[in-house]
Simulated assay, not measured.
Amino acid sequence: MSPTATATAAKSDIVIDLREVETRFGAHVVHHNLNLQVRRAEVFAIIGGSGSGKSTLLREMILLHRPDAGRIKVLGVELKDLSPEDALALRLRWGVLFQHGGLFGSLTVLENIGLPLREHTRLSNKLIDDLAAWKLDMVGLKPEVGAQYPAQLSGGMMKRASLARALALDPELLFLDEPTAGLDPESAAGVDELVLRLRDLFGLTIVMISHDLDLLWQVADRVAVLGEGRVQGVGSMAELADMNQPAIRPFFEGARGRAAQPASIPPTQAKEPSSKPK
């Protein structure tokens, strides 16, 4: 392959491209000269301490907040100054699972899943119900769950139903905001498996915000660590575990960080100052 063809292929492999993003809330700087790229068909996670700007960055990528400076391209489209028509067309190409689900309490699960299809297609009600039932099955929920209301669902079922709605329009790109937050270990493990299955079956690019270290080790191809307004490091969890940076070390040190690491990888040991006299 020629150098030009290689460069073109590499460029087309980038699904999200952030360049020199600046975000401020008054005098508070959230992002400063932030750069990040997400590749096609990868599970990409964003982590960081409280106040590091993870959720703000997600909101910027899904057109819910505009940065003060810099450039964001999603699916090859520059987000700045999009017309309402172009913004809608772009939103229809991605799905979002919000942290608390975001299902409408007055609608059944099946009605919630079918809502994007009713709003944005001209399909018959029968076909929409059939497609919604298929999405329900895709995320591992039984048909009878479709007749229930969100308030009747467990936390794990709520996450799966919300994910089914995010998949209603067959998106190319999927955003997950804390997909395992509030779930028991068994339900969280089920989400792990589901994320990988969706990526492998449909070639989805998946971007997620998560504090769940088990989830990160199990499903993330690459992880970006935010700190001090910038990306402090990007790589697999194993690669990050070898990086000796203050913003990265807390995710691998301590009992919680070490317990999440697979048995095949030596647990990272926190370096304690020596108490012996020199």
Rank of each mutant, 00 (worst) to 15 (best):
A168Q: 03
I16H: 03
S154W: 14
A45V: 04
A132R: 02
D177H: 01
A45Q: 01
L107Q: 14
G76Q: 10
A89V: 12
L92D: 00
R222S: 00
F25G: 08
M208V: 01
K11L: 13
I113L: 05
T108S: 15
I16R: 04
S154Q: 15
D200S: 13
A133D: 13
A238F: 06
G48Y: 03
G146C: 02
L201I: 08
W94T: 04
K54I: 00
L213S: 02
L131K: 12
A255H: 14
A247K: 09
L183S: 08
L79C: 00
D86S: 12
A259K: 13
G48K: 03
L64M: 11
A260L: 13
A241V: 10
E193M: 11
I248W: 04
V231S: 05
A69D: 13
E42T: 13
L110A: 15
S124L: 06
P171F: 08
H28F: 11
P179F: 03
A247L: 14
R66L: 09
R249W: 04
E193W: 07
R256V: 15
L57A: 01
G190W: 10
K159W: 09
K126G: 00
I14C: 12
Q37A: 12
F202N: 07
L240W: 00
G102P: 10
K159C: 05
G257A: 12
A87H: 06
P143G: 01
S162Y: 01
Q245G: 09
L141H: 05
L64V: 06
E60D: 09
P150Q: 10
L176G: 01
K126E: 10
G190L: 13
Q218S: 10
